[in-house]
């Protein structure tokens, strides 16, 4: 039963991903990307990773994609892809290279991952449940102890992103002077 659900999900995910690739309309391709993200969240749920699944929906589908759609609407993009890809030789060779990449990788992964044992996550989670510790507790504890440095660095990263986004997206008047918020309000 689980496998049937899984493979259906597999097919839908690939379909949405192809939608991102082949749609000529930017908004449609963004919606396909949302579909991929939601499918992946479902995939994570099948793997009993509830926390990551919900973060995936909240952060990716909820925040990042809204930002994308916002920018698409803001810039009012009506442009479509013009030349069919197969008419451009560079794209053709790029495609050939990409597909080779995929087949080599898929083959290697299939061959070398075959004969693996049962996934260990179920046992780990059962062990946590027996000790009456929620998984989220372990995750958060690890984050502020073992992974404290990346956690702190993330705050720096977000600061840089905020500064960068403000610098790049702030409006200018004709002479290139920054338009300040106070001026706009006044």
């Amino acid at each position: 039963m689980e496998l049937i659900i899984y493979y259906t999900l597999f097919a839908i995910t690939v379909g949405f991903a192809l939608g991102v690739l082949l749609n000529k309309n930017t908004v449609k391709s963004a919606m396909s990307l949302v579909g991929v993200m939601i499918c992946l969240a479902a995939n994570f749920l099948l793997m009993r990773q509830e926390f990551v699944a919900f973060i995936q929906i909240i952060v990716y589908a909820g925040a990042i994609m809204v930002l994308f759609l916002f920018v698409i609407m803001l810039l009012n993009l009506r442009e479509r892809e013009t030349t069919p890809w197969y008419l451009r030789s560079t794209r053709f060779w790029g495609g050939a290279l990409g597909l080779t990449f995929f087949f080599v990788m898929a083959w290697g992964l299939q061959v070398f991952s075959a004969g693996t044992t049962e996934p260990a996550m179920a046992a780990v989670q059962a062990d946590l449940a027996a000790r009456n510790t929620p998984e989220i507790t372990v995750l958060s504890t690890k984050m502020i102890t073992h992974y404290i440095v990346p956690f702190l660095l993330t705050s720096v990263l977000l600061l840089v992103a905020v500064i960068g986004a403000i610098v790049m997206a702030r409006r200018q008047d004709e002479d290139g002077n920054e338009i300040l918020v106070e001026d706009e309000v006044a």
Partner: peptide, 13 residues
């Protein structure tokens, strides 16, 4: 992971 985040700090700047 630290290296990756540091790389992103540098690259975004």
């Amino acid at each position: 992971l630290t290296a990756f985040i540091a790389l992103e700090i540098m690259s975004l700047s």
